[in-house]
Design a protein around this nucleic acid. Structure first.
Lengths: 237, 237
DNA sequence: TCTCAAAGGATCAGTTGTAGACCTTTAGGC
DNA sequence: GCCTAAAGGTCTACAACTGATCCTTTGAGA
């Protein structure tokens, strides 16, 4: 009996590859989400390996690959370290040139659920000045940044907003969905006018948060998301 | 320089343990969520190992442990297999007797975001009869079931509702959060009156879905969740 | 009643990943 | 201008995991 195929349909793999591959994915994600912002120094290998729960050997293999691809650069000696490139390299030509519409809808739908909810919760909590400062900082770094370096910093801003929700598990989901959206965005051109508009919306969001206005915060971000959503859907035809 | 500790704060581990441990967690989750319902036969080891992306050796170690703990029972010979116990054993006395309030709020908040959204989306899509049948089936299996066997089937019902949203990534989040909630619920008593009330709410949700009424669906499930949320918060003091 | 296919059970060589010690480079401080 | 601490770079013994093969059990059907 070849077993009920329906039972196996929902069984996800325990791991999505070998340790090296997963570590690469993980690091790429951290870079794309701006958690290690462009131009900064990453933590020392020994600490990073520990935080990732991976041996230094494996981490170093992944870092070597990233260096090869131009994402980071290692410098030896005291006060050396692994430095993030000021501008992340454009991803390779994607394997699948045309995107699966269902997949895109999936990601956009999840995003439309979690990001507005996070913004609403953040505004409800009336964050203290110190917490807001981190968002403010992320916002300022974003102003006038060149197009090529925009995306990681944009992600960072959105993640900082999500963190204000005070709900770590929600932040994790937002980070995840944003990472997927970034992969989609890599396949379409990024236009300066869009950036300007985005930055204005960020400012509006920031104000809603300062005022502790959940309804406004949710509305602003929903609007904001619809912009990129439309862009992505458009490039699908 | 001991590196900027803020940078490492948000770095999650690549893996949460060795393969054996992760496989155990994974299987426990599948059992608790009712994806392998009580009393049924699980897929053959070879197929399950393949689906989990794990060697049969490792899977067998995990299954042996589960058998030891009374979750499953293996039967040899043709038409044998690994059978899920009709009633899952009560979990061991939890390591941490008193729960961390922040942790509980975290899970409950995420749940309050994703489950209502999934129900709303499900109602919006006006699911076809065939899809509704799976939810209906899950609902019927739940009626009159003994208290001890309730939880996996309850989870299954909620997961089937989430599946109707047509958004796989949202289903994944719902599954995840439900798994965490189940762990919390394991620490508090389950009362038959609560079950009756739950089942009534399930019926109301089902009706809202049939009618394609997103507002009602969202309202019913929000109400439903607040019940267990209050219960959990109550047992925290 | 015999056969056999489909399931769990056992074993082992080979590969992958880890932990830890050690080497090399380099800038700042005495 | 030398010393040293902190970083990346290298190597090796050990543990974990895999995958492949074979064994054993058992019920259905010829």
């Amino acid at each position: 009996m070849a077993s009920d195929s329906r039972l196996l349909a929902d069984v996800a793999p325990v791991r999505s590859g070998n340790v090296f591959e997963e570590t690469m994915e993980h690091l790429l994600r951290l870079l794309r989400l701006g958690q290690f912002p462009p131009g900064t120094r990453m933590p020392p290998e020994r600490e990073l390996a520990e935080a990732l729960g991976v041996s230094r050997t494996t981490l170093r293999e992944a870092l070597a690959e990233l260096q090869q691809a131009g994402y980071v650069q290692a410098r030896r000696g005291r006060y050396g370290g692994t430095y993030v490139a000021p501008v992340l390299p454009a991803p390779q030509a994607p394997e699948v040139p045309t995107l699966d519409a269902a997949e895109v809808e999936d990601v956009l739908t999840l995003r439309a659920v979690v990001e507005p909810a996070a913004a609403r919760l953040a505004a409800e909590r009336l964050p203290r000045a110190k917490q807001l400062a981190r968002v403010q900082e992320a916002h300022e770094q974003l102003v006038g940044v060149p197009v090529e370096a925009y995306r990681p910093l944009d992600s960072r801003f959105h993640l900082e907003v999500a963190r204000l929700s005070g709900t770590p598990s929600l932040v994790a989901v937002v980070a995840d969905v944003r990472n997927q959206v970034n992969r989609l965005l890599d396949r379409i051109p990024l236009l300066p006018p869009n950036l300007d508009h985005s930055t204005q919306q960020h400012a509006a969001l920031l104000e809603a948060l300062e005022q502790g206005d959940p309804v406004a915060a949710e509305a602003v971000i929903t609007d904001h998301l619809q912009g990129t959503a439309a862009l992505l859907r458009g490039f699908l035809t």
